[in-house]
Design a protein around this nucleic acid. Structure first.
Lengths: 208, 208, 208, 208
DNA sequence: GATGAATGAGGGTTCATTCAT
DNA sequence: TATGAATGAACCCTCATTCAT
C-alpha cells in the first residue's frame, strides 16, 4: 500500500507495516464517520497502536486524511493508463474496463474513498485538486484517446461520448454510491448494470 | 419550504419563517461542512437567530439535519411523479426531465443535498432509508413505468435501460458531483452533457 | 481590578465580577505554577466557573496571562506618577515611596507578578515589551526627574544615582524576591531594609 | 562542570562528558523555557544524545533540573568564600567583587540560573532550600564578616549595610534581571552601574 | 417566545517515560 | 551502553446543550 521504495531492515518493515495498518484503520473510520466525526482514538484502536503512535507517522489528522487518499488512489492510475495503451478493439477494452471497475468498485475500500472525496472535497480543496490533477485528468485524457480512436474506427457511433467521457464512467459512480448506501434496501448487480451500459453504447443486444 | 399546513396567525407566520430561515442556514452550513463539522453557532448566526432559538424548533442537531433533508426532498417528488403520469412521447419527456435535472442540479442547493446524502448516509441509516423509501423507490417506480412504455412503443431499443433505470439518471449524478467538486478545475456544460446522453439513448444524432 | 468603564446593568456587573474572579484565580495559579505548568482546569475551579467559561472572557491561555499582567500593573503607574509630581523634599518623598513599595511588595499579589515577569519574560517578549513600555520607562522617567531635582538641591550627593535610578529601586526587587522565596528560611524585615537603604543614600544616621 | 571525583578510565571520561553535555543543554533549555515548558527532546537534541540516554544519567526531568542547579551553583561558592578570607582593604575587595559579579552576571549562563531559581523556586521548595542553605546563607555569612570588619575599620560608615548585606548585592540582582529582560529595549552598562553603587556605599566621588 | 452566558464532556495533540533492539 | 519507537496520561480548546433572564 505504501508507494515508497521497499523497506529492508526489520525495523523498516515493521514501521511500514504500522503505517499501512494506520492507513487501513483510517480508511475504515473516515469512510464510515467522515473526516470530522472520526476519532483518532478509534483509528488507533483499530490499527492496534496507541494514540500517540499515529503522530509518529502523520503530522496530524488532516495529513493522515490526505495521505490516505493519496495512498489509495496512486496505485490505481498506473494500472489504468497501461490498459489505455493497449490497442485492442474497443468492445473488448470496454468489457475489461467494466470488469476492473466492477471489482474495484465492489471492493468496498475503493468505493468508500470515492464517497469520501465527494463528501469532503469542498472542505479540502487540496484533496479535490490532487484528485483532479493526479487521477481524473489523466483518466479522462486516456479515455479521450481511446474513445477518439474507437469513434474513428466506427466502433462507437456517437461523438457525444468523445466530448463527454463522463458518460462512459457515470454508471461506475452510481454503482459505487448505490451499493454503498442502498445495499440493504435494494442490492445492485453491478456487473449486469455495466454490461447493459456497454450494450447500449455499442448498440448491441438491442430489442427483441 | 416547510411542508406543514399553512400557518394563519401572525405569530404562526413569523414562526414558520424562522423555521425556514434556520433550515436554509442549516443547508448552507451542513452541505459545506458536513454534519459533524457544521456548528450550530454558525447556523444560528446565518439564520439571524440566537443559538438557543434553534432548540425551540428542533430537538437537537441531528433532528435539524433530518428535517432539513426531508424538507428539501419532499417537494421534489410530487413534481416528478406528475411528469411521469403524462403520456407524451419519450423523446420529449426525456428532454423535459433533462431540463429539470439540469436546472435542479445547477441550482447549488439541491446538488448539495445529494452530496450530503452520499456523505452522511452511512452514518445516518434513517436518512438513507428515508431517501430510498420516499424518493428513490418512487422515482424508480415511475421511471420503470415510463421506460417500459417507451420500450414497448419502440422509442428506445434496449431492455437494459428498463432493468437499470440507474443508467438513465447516472449522468445527472455525475454532473452534480462534478460541478460541485471540479467547477474550478474544469467546468462542465451540464445541458450539453445531458443532451448527448439522451442522443445516445435514443440513438439519434449519431455518426457523422 | 478591571480598568474599563464601570459596568451598569446587572448582567454587566456579574460579567465583570467573573472576569475579575478569573484574573484573580489565574494570578494565583500562574504565579505558583508558572505559565506552562498552570492548568486552566485549576484556574476555573479556583474562580468557581466551568472550564469553558474562561474562553468567554479570554481567547486562550496566553491571552489570559497577558491580560492578567496588564490588569495588575496598569493601576500602579498612575499612583506612582502622581507621587512623582509633588514637590516635597526628597527625604520625605523617599520615605513615602519606601512605604508604598513595602506595602505593595508585602502584598503578596504584586510581588508574584514581578516574579512572573522575571520568570516568563524571555518567553513572552510582548510581556517584557509591555512592562518596559508601560511601566518601567515611565517609572524611570519620573525617577530621573525626582533624582535630578534632588541632586540639584543637594539632597543627594551622588550623580551615580541620577544616572542609574535602578540603584534606588534595587532593594525593592530583592525584598520582593527574597520574601517570595525565603520567607520560611529567613524572613526579611522589608520596612527596615528600605529604611537602611534610604539612610545610606541620604548619608544620614551613619556610624554611631 | 561535574563536581564528582575525577573519572579515570576512558569510559568514565566519556560518560562524564556526556553528563556535562546534558547539563549544559538542560541549562540552555530550562533557562529559556522554564522547567515545565522545556522539552527533554530538545535537551537531548542539543546535547547530541538520544532521548533515552538522559535517563541513564538522571532519574527524571525533575532530578535533572535539581542536579543542574546544584552543578551550576556549587563551584561559585568556594571561589567566593576564598575571596572573603583575604584581608585586603574593603574598597579593593568591593571592586573585585563587582568585577566578578559583572562578569558572572554578564556571562549569560549564571544570570539565567538566577532567573530560573526565582521562577521555579516556589514550585520546587527543595531548590529554594538548597539554594538558601548551600549558597545564600554562606554568602551572607561571609559578607557579614567582611562588612563587620569594614565597618569597624571605618571603611564604610553605615551599620545598615552590616544588618542588611542584601543591600550590597541588590544591584547585582537588578543587573542580572534587567539585562536578561530588557537588553533590547534599554541595554545596561553593568560595570558602570556597580561602580556607581560602590561609590555611593563608600561615599566617594560624590557631588561635583 | 427569544436570548446568549454558562456548562462540561469530548477530542486532538504533546511529551515524559519505558523498553525492545 | 545507547537508541528512538512506542506508549498513554494529561491538557488546551471546542461546541452541543441548558437555563436564568
Amino acid at each position: 500500500m505504501s508507494e515508497s521504495a521497499k523497506p529492508r531492515t526489520a525495523r523498516e518493515i515493521r514501521s511500514a507495516a504500522r503505517r499501512d495498518a494506520i492507513i487501513d484503520a483510517a480508511l475504515e473510520e473516515f469512510s464510515f464517520q467522515g473526516f470530522a466525526a472520526a476519532r483518532l482514538d478509534d483509528i488507533a484502536k483499530r490499527a492496534g497502536v496507541a494514540k500517540g503512535t499515529i503522530y509518529l507517522y502523520f503530522a496530524d489528522k488532516e495529513t493522515l486524511f490526505k495521505e490516505l487518499v493519496r495512498a489509495m488512489l496512486t496505485p490505481l492510475i498506473g494500472q489504468f493508463e497501461a490498459l489505455a495503451k493497449t490497442d485492442i478493439p474497443f468492445p473488448l477494452l470496454a468489457e475489461r474496463l467494466a470488469d476492473v471497475a466492477a471489482r474495484e468498485v465492489a471492493g468496498s475500500r475503493r468505493r468508500d474513498i470515492i464517497r469520501l472525496i465527494i463528501a469532503e472535497g469542498p472542505r479540502f480543496p487540496e484533496i479535490a485538486d490532487f484528485y483532479y490533477r493526479e487521477i481524473l485528468s489523466r483518466v479522462f485524457a486516456a479515455l479521450q484517446t481511446i474513445l477518439t480512436r474507437a469513434f474513428e474506427r466506427g466502433e462507437i457511433r456517437h461523438r457525444g461520448l468523445v466530448d463527454f467521457p463522463q458518460l462512459l464512467v457515470a454508471p461506475v459512480l452510481i454503482a459505487a454510491t448505490w451499493s454503498s448506501l442502498f445495499e440493504k434496501q435494494a442490492p445492485l448487480d453491478i456487473q449486469a448494470l455495466l454490461k447493459a451500459h456497454i450494450d447500449i453504447l455499442l448498440d448491441r443486444g438491442s430489442a427483441s
